[in-house]
């Protein structure tokens, strides 16, 4: 994902802002990291450049 995705995404559960924690980056793309809800603290993984914004009960 690109960092600019932060402008349009929010926590799918409570619609609050997300914080971005970056573990690996390639040019302007975040490859590995975590999106963390500033309100409920739920964590959404970013793997292979793809953020998983499904609520925890839908994540497989």
């Amino acid at each position: 994902m690109k960092e600019s995705l932060m402008d349009i995404i929010c926590c799918p559960m409570d619609k609050h802002d997300l914080d971005l924690e970056i573990d690996a980056q390639d040019d302007d793309e975040v490859l590995e990291g975590t999106l963390v809800c500033t309100e409920c603290g739920e964590r959404y993984p970013i793997e292979d450049g793809i953020p998983n914004l499904l609520p925890p009960d839908m994540r497989d």
Partner: peptide, 10 residues
Amino acid sequence: ARANLLTPFR
């Protein structure tokens, strides 16, 4: 991005 419909959009 992996998402269920529009739920993670502002």
